[in-house]
Amino acid sequence: MEQQAGLTPHKDGSIIMQNNGGIKQNNDGLVLQDVKILHNDKHLLGIDAAIKPGEVLTLMGPSGSGKSTIISAIAGFLPAVFTCSGTILLNGKNIANLPPQQRKIGVLFQDTLLFPHFSVLQNILFALPPGGSMAKRCERALSLLDDISMVEFADRDTDTLSGGQKSRVALVRVIASMPNALLLDEPFSKLDADMRDSMRQLVFEEARRKQIPTLLVTHDPEDAKAANGRILTL
């Protein structure tokens, strides 16, 4: 299993891993068992996968293949035209029937979706789990901003940030919510080419450092390469 995770994909990124049977029975991480998604009662796709803490699993597929639908299914906001069956285990607990707010799964979208009416700091404060004095919360939020060298932007209007800055804030925001798993829905595709690499670095490092199981869906082989983990292709 260790070696599977360490496998490097070929240049065309075509290594297909649909078998996770060898994964050692460890409760930690995100496990998708026999997850099937139906569109208006028509089979759309199915997936079986296990992602260990700190691991980044990449799901490759062309647009229209239903990649984003899997993200919605795992996060819990699947549109009503779809139905989802199967088991989603997060740290050993089946979350498949929980509402999104109880799943503790963070998502990064193509768009940063920073709340436009909040400042940078407020975006992070909003994401921090409840509890603690306001001063403590601010301190925590600022230290998170410090991690991405953006403390001085704390009071800024998010709309005035550059694309790269926005992406970093979005990352910090999701980290602040202390998710048990991270879903990445092509989060780098709208970034300028020069920003993309550093952002990939930042995201994947963060996921590993925090030991968060991470699922990346993308159509960009560069993303998959940078993720440096197993790759599934739809």
Partner: peptide, 11 residues
């Protein structure tokens, strides 16, 4: 999707 984000943040 703003609402999806808020909910994934546990709200």
């Amino acid at each position: 999707r703003y609402l999806d984000v808020a909910r994934t943040l546990g709200k």
